[in-house]
Design a protein around this nucleic acid. Structure first.
Length: 554
DNA sequence: GGATCCGTTGTAGCT
DNA sequence: AAGCTACAACGGATC
């Protein structure tokens, strides 16, 4: 008899509780993954699927170096597991362990598997591990309220106490079974993966974490809104952030391991704070996981207390141009082509293209953009992706005010932090590679002679702007306001989920009150140590400059 | 119960 | 050059 370890996310050996439990059971251990036909080409782009297969390869290699291996089965999970529950040795399971997954598809599937296991007399157990918090335990606690701000998620996390330390890799009994290899991507997809810089797997995940944390000052001073949407100077395809998100999505990296590695860098020294710090990023991840699990219909427009209903348009032509990176707005197009080509986009880039598709310019439904991201992003994660689209469409209570619309042609003062030499745009939109920098974000303003000289005539070699931004912006602001005024944007919030009525939740946008960016926020009583804060921002500025120099030099 | 503060990340235009 | 204002004006938390 054997204990199965069902890998789904959690594609790692470190800090893997199901694996530790199986290894401690005294039974043989069968590590396996099931390639579920549900996740087909319509749902998963070739780059993410390749990332998954690389992660499985890495897992297999690591297990083999420990005299075990990974078995990859294909088919519907319920069917495969039914066979493993009733099959012949050595592939018959008397126990199976996995990491809990709170996404709706996984939840329904796992409930069926738990029932099957009970029926078959197989011990089945799942362990919380993908998040810092035990999501289900948290949302069922009396008095739980869905967090919609950094303060509220911090309160929840603080109340939960310190997270357990990451677990060591257990001693795994040897396994000798033939077949069930990790397939090659060419067996499953016709097109070739095109991603760069993000090889899947735990080995790379830990190496990347190591690289990030070897620069403790970078970790201490990290402020997300100050990182560049257009990558690193000189190599715009490299993220200006840590690039750890795909590894967290698949659990190649344990979030606890990441949390404590960051903690070691910042402990005892002055450091940036949530929400902008690296810990803040992980806290947002927790917040969206809680919302995804606690809010019914979190991925929908209707029946979703976190979503104001806005009469979005439905124009296939606009959506297709956006997805293809052919809107005629070079910054938007470069970002969308980066997404398609590499599977990665900086968070602020996601702000720019999501705002452009929805309330900013094209007035298309946020779920349409959500689906494109869900397919193409290496780090596409159901709760985070939905949460971010709700945020950016301006329909969630945690959204920025709807009238804060990003300029799709960001200048040097824009909070999108887009570099001004145009190297990012030129890299992903090669039609524009000879366009002078001063016209790069608005090439239609270049005189025809300049366009010809650059070999890029607008309307021929590169599209005209698909909409007039100033006009679209004003029209959309008016439509959004009208929808709010008519109360069409407010739902009665009367659909209780399986859990108790979470209570009427906010469904409106907010404004920041008077003052521009950051104005009027200093000097409040929240900032008890203004000196430390000032020294932090000095450090951060110094650091930013140093980073720029280093990267420019290298 | 009313007032006040606050919310990761807008932009243009002015001084 | 950095800092202010206009734009339009929500709702949760706290006092």
């Amino acid at each position: 008899m054997a204990a199965g370890v069902w890998f789904r996310k959690c594609l790692r050996l470190h800090d893997n509780e199901p694996l530790a439990k199986a290894a401690a059971s005294g039974l043989d251990v069968i590590p396996f993954f099931i390639l579920d036909p549900h996740f087909d080409k319509s749902r998963v782009g070739v780059n993410r699927f390749n990332f998954l297969l690389q992660s499985l390869q890495d897992l297999d290699q690591q297990l083999r170096s420990r005299k075990s291996r990974l078995l990859v089965f294909r088919g519907q999970p319920e069917q495969v597991l039914a066979e493993l529950f009733s099959g012949k040795a050595p592939l018959r399971l008397s126990a199976v362990f996995w990491e809990a997954d709170t996404e709706p598809y996984a939840r329904a599937r796992d409930a069926r598997v738990l029932a099957m296991a009970k029926e078959a007399g197989v011990q089945a157990e799942q362990f919380s591990g993908h998040t810092l918090l035990d999501i289900d335990a948290t949302i069922w606690k009396p008095g739980f309220k869905p967090p919609i701000s950094m303060k509220s998620i911090q309160a929840i996390v603080n109340a939960a106490g310190p997270f357990r330390a990451p677990l060591d890799v257990p001693k795994i009994p040897p396994l000798k079974v033939e077949g069930h290899q990790v397939p090659a991507i060419s067996e499953l997809y016709d097109d070739e993966p095109t991603s760069q810089g993000f090889p899947g797997g735990e080995t790379e995940a830990l190496a990347r974490l190591q690289r990030v944390c070897s620069d403790a000052e970078y970790v201490r001073c990290f402020e997300k809104p100050k990182t560049a949407s257009t990558g690193r100077p000189g190599c715009p395809w490299e993220p200006s952030t840590t690039g750890l998100s795909p590894y967290l999505k698949f659990g190649c990296l344990s979030v606890r391991t990441a949390w404590y590695a960051i903690d070691r860098c910042i402990r005892g020294k002055s450091h940036s704070q949530p929400p902008q710090s690296l810990h803040g990023q992980l806290l947002f991840r927790e917040m969206f996981y809680l919302l995804g699990a606690a809010v019914p219909n979190f991925d929908r427009n209707e029946g979703n207390t976190m979503c104001k209903v806005i009469p979005w348009g439905d124009d296939e032509h606009l959506l297709a141009a956006w997805e293809a990176g052919k809107t005629g707005y070079p910054f938007i197009d470069a970002l969308m082509r980066q997404l398609k080509q590499t599977g990665f986009m900086h968070h602020l880039g996601r702000h720019a293209v999501a705002c452009f598709l929805t309330r900013g310019d094209l007035w298309q439904h946020w779920t349409a953009g959500r689906d494109v991201f869900d397919r193409l992003l290496l780090d596409a994660d159901w709760a985070l992706n939905n949460g971010n689209w709700l945020w950016l469409a301006g329909v969630a209570p945690f959204s920025a005010p709807y009238f804060r619309i990003y300029d799709p042609c960001p200048g040097p003062k824009s909070s999108l932090n887009a570099e001004q030499t145009g190297e990012f745009v030129k890299h992903y939109v090669p039609e524009l590679k000879n366009m002078p920098a001063k016209y790069l974000y608005k090439p239609w303003t270049a005189p025809l002679a300049e366009q010809k000289k650059a070999g890029c005539v607008i309307g021929q070699d590169y599209p005209q702007p698909i909409v007039d931004h100033q006009r679209a912006r004003e029209e959309n602001l008016a439509k959004f306001k009208a929808a709010l005024d008519s109360k069409g944007g407010v739902l009665p919030a009367k659909f209780g989920g399986a859990k108790g009525d979470p209570g009427p939740m906010s469904t409106s946008a907010y404004t920041s009150g008077k003052g521009g960016k950051g104005a009027g926020r200093k000097g409040g009583k929240r900032h008890e140590v203004p000196e430390a804060e000032a020294s932090d921002s000095r450090k951060i500025r110094r650091w930013g400059k140093k980073l720029d120099d280093t990267l420019a030099g290298g």
